[in-house]
């Protein structure tokens, strides 16, 4: 199955993530509603997003959806549970796209907080020397072929293109 996500959204009742995707094999557009379970106003959104991203049944649909986006969707759900309106919630999170945040400009304290957040994922994915399948010099080739898609980060580039 070849799934390409087109759009994501949320549904408040019951709390769910909505995904519009294209099945490349059939060229059909489909909608998938993924219920967000065991989630309260006190839940950790990044953990919940991770859980969903790697969910047995849903992960295949969410491959092309970034973890950051899933986390933002969960943040909106959590804001709703805390009594914020959708407008308020969007206003709070606008401009806080971690993708665009310049960590060089943060205070030490704030930078360390962000590093600690990143460390959670690092520790979860970490292979340790004690792990039975640990390989010190782990080489993986990612062959460059002609169908390789250009990263969207390059496409937007034009004005600040010094090099």
């Amino acid at each position: 199955m070849s799934i390409v996500a087109k759009q994501c959204g949320v549904k408040f009742i019951p709390p769910s993530i909505v995904l519009i995707y294209e099945n490349k094999n059939t060229s059909k557009m489909r909608k998938r509603i993924i219920p967000v379970r065991n989630f309260s106003q006190y839940s950790d959104c990044s953990q919940a997003a991770e859980r969903m991203k790697h969910h047995v049944r849903h992960s295949v649909y969410l491959e092309s959806v970034s973890l950051a986006q899933l986390e933002r969707l969960h943040l909106i759900l959590r804001d709703h549970l805390q009594g914020l309106s959708l407008d308020q919630s969007l206003a709070v999170h606008r401009g806080s796209d971690p993708n665009d945040e310049d960590l060089n400009k943060l205070s030490d304290e704030e930078l360390n907080r962000r590093k600690a957040q990143m460390d959670e994922l690092f520790e979860r994915n970490r292979r340790r020397k004690e792990d039975p399948d640990f390989v010190y010099d782990l080489e993986v080739e990612f062959p460059e072929n002609s169908v390789r898609e250009t990263c969207s980060w390059d496409e937007e580039q034009s004005d600040d293109d010094e090099f």
Binding site: E63, S64, S66, L67, L121, N125, F142, E144, R148, E149, T150, C151, W153, D154, F163
Partner: peptide, 16 residues
């Protein structure tokens, strides 16, 4: 490791 899909993409800065 955070998103293995990126390895299917090309990042042009290095190539350029």
């Amino acid at each position: 490791d955070a998103d293995i899909k990126v390895t299917q993409k090309s990042f042009n800065f290095a190539k350029k």
